[in-house]
């Protein structure tokens, strides 16, 4: 494991045959490792391809305009003439809860990220906030569900769309914090000095110059956070629970795409499982599309 391995071959007595053998062995090991790495990369790509192909093959056959316009219907298995259900209720529920989550979480995350980059780069409080935010970024999302259950669902006496939105907002905050701080730190200090040198107060420097300079990066963070919560299932199971009818009442249980997928995939009825695949296709391609847009936005900036 030490650097001596590297220099061993050349400093001993030269024996041409031995040197050649050693050389062959070193080349062989190098080639072997290279192939193993190529295989590892192929394995990683294979899994992504397998997931996407499975989704397309099983989802495309059951996706239709009905999927987007109809609510849940109980199984019609064995009755080919019956109308199949759709996911309209779930798509609407996901849109509402994701909007609440992003709308509430983004401003808080933006302010925290600004605090870390502009006010507390090296203060003890800043380091504590940075640490906690990073832990929240990777903390199990189901625990956020349990937290919101205790804090919102119990006092309200039942599952609700607003509780689902609150849980998603908590998940948005650390993502936006991380990207906002990173992007603000990329801004050269000379820009800040120029603004302050003109006599502007610091809050104007931050809001009118720094935020604007980091805009595409901040938007990337918001998009990534939105993508993340669009596919979140576990916290919603404990907060908005899911619903088989379309509901815009934030005080009641609310459907969402991931929960609808979860329930119908485990229903055991082939026709409902087909609808679950259609939903899975919609969610995955929605999430991946947001991710790709976010990446292009960031790439265009550099």
């Amino acid at each position: 494991m030490s650097a001596t391995i590297v220099s061993t071959p050349s400093f001993h007595k030269r024996d041409p045959a031995m040197a050649a053998a050693l050389n062959r062995r070193r080349r062989f090991v190098d080639g072997l490792v290279r192939w193993l790495c190529i295989i590892a990369t192929a394995v990683g790509l294979f899994f992504l391809a397998s997931i996407l192909l499975t989704l397309i093959l099983r989802g495309i056959s059951s996706i239709s305009i009905i999927t987007f316009t109809t609510e849940f219907r109980p199984t019609t298995y064995g009755d080919p003439t019956a109308e199949t259900g759709g996911l309209y209720h779930a798509i609407m529920g996901t849109l509402v809860q994701t909007a609440i989550g992003t709308g509430v979480g983004t401003p808080i995350g933006l302010l925290v990220g600004t605090y870390l980059a502009e006010y507390a780069r090296n203060s003890a409080l800043g380091n504590a906030v940075r640490f906690v935010s990073d832990v929240l970024l990777s903390a199990p999302s189901i625990l956020v569900g349990l937290f919101v259950y205790q804090l919102v669902v119990l006092p309200m006496g039942g599952f609700s769309g607003i509780a689902g939105g609150a849980a998603l907002a908590i998940l948005v905050i650390p993502v936006v914090v991380r990207t906002t701080e990173d992007m603000l730190q990329l801004i050269p200090n000379t820009l800040r000095e120029a603004v302050v040198g003109l006599g502007a107060p610091k809050w104007k420097m931050v809001t009118l110059v720094c935020w604007r300079a980091a805009l595409s990066g901040i938007v990337t963070g918001i998009l990534l956070a939105t993508a993340r919560i669009t596919g979140e299932t576990a916290p919603l199971l404990l907060t908005s629970f899911g619903n088989n009818v379309t509901s815009f009442n934030l005080g009641n249980a609310m459907a969402s795409l991931p929960i609808a997928i979860y329930q119908q995939a485990n229903s055991g009825f082939p026709d409902l499982i087909d609808i679950a695949w259609a939903g899975a296709l919609i969610v995955t391609f929605g999430v991946l599309a947001i991710n790709i847009v976010a990446r292009l936005l960031l790439a265009g900036r550099k």
Partner: peptide
């Protein structure tokens, strides 16, 4: 592509895992 694998929602991994 490898980073996009991280963006796939966990419920999709679950479904793919169960059926494939």
């Amino acid at each position: 592509a490898i980073e996009l694998l991280a963006a796939v929602p966990s419920i999709i991994f679950g479904m793919w895992g169960l059926f494939v």
